[in-house]
Amino acid sequence: MSDDAQTVADPGTTAGEAARDAVTCSDLSYSFGQVKAVDGLDLSVASGEIFGLLGPNGAGKSTVIRCVTTLLPVPSGMVRVFGHDAARERMAVRRLLGYVPQQLSADASLTGRENVALFARLFDVSRRERAARVTEALEAVGLADAADRMAGTYSGGMVRRLELAQALISAPRLLMLDEPTIGLDPIARTSVWEHIMAVRAATGMTVLVTTHYMDEAEQYCDRVALMHQGRIRALGTPDQLVADLRARRDDGSTPTLEDVFRDVAGSGLDEEGGEFRDVRRTRRTASRVG
């Protein structure tokens, strides 16, 4: 087994890599005071794939996402989005990506349509095209009928789909979804994923998604990275990771992705499993949904 999860950046091929990869992080670290949230992370997401960043609460997934979206600075290391440096070319990076944050967030005192129209304005959609484009985005996520209701009356799954419409309005090449199904009931979860898959099939965009639901990753992601305590512990297609573990265990049992996770994260997973702060945040999200 190789402990080397990084795609080594060979100086000779960086230009080629940059053109092909949607996201490259090299040696990215981020700390909140004493807490090392991301610890020397190397990651590359190929253009066109659905890439899952998996890990328990507190693993550092959101911090990585927020560094890529330019929300957080990049204090050490390098982050590139389609070749653009996230620390230096912020506006160029933001124009390329659609972002749905972990927290359910729509402006409750605006209608669904107005929520999407705001993002159309902020991404410079021309006035001529705006109304049609907003309608198309709302239709794509199945909210055409609820478009003129206040977003405050939406269910959790509807808010998520509204956020998806907001993210799609600028035709992003990279869609970043931070725990898109957190706190949703199983039916809403499936519906959100179906819309993500349909949109991605129609547009061919790259999707970078974080989740701590291993089953979703197994079902929907082309490749996954298993993250624990700020580092990537394993990387590959879900099938490959599972097959590798089966080969290593060699006891005839069929492991799941969750078993792979336990294997690479070692012990410590059950005891830590996210700090109080994360648990509370998750609960808050969940209660907003319910």
Partner: peptide
């Protein structure tokens, strides 16, 4: 056990953009 090589992306649906009616959303503003 780890593969640093990106896998082939899953094939994009044959229905094409028209299926969802996303024509406008294919072009950045």
């Amino acid at each position: 056990m780890m593969s640093a090589e990106p896998a082939e992306p899953r094939p994009v649906s044959v229905d094409g953009p028209g299926a969802l009616g996303l024509d406008l959303l294919l072009v950045p503003p």
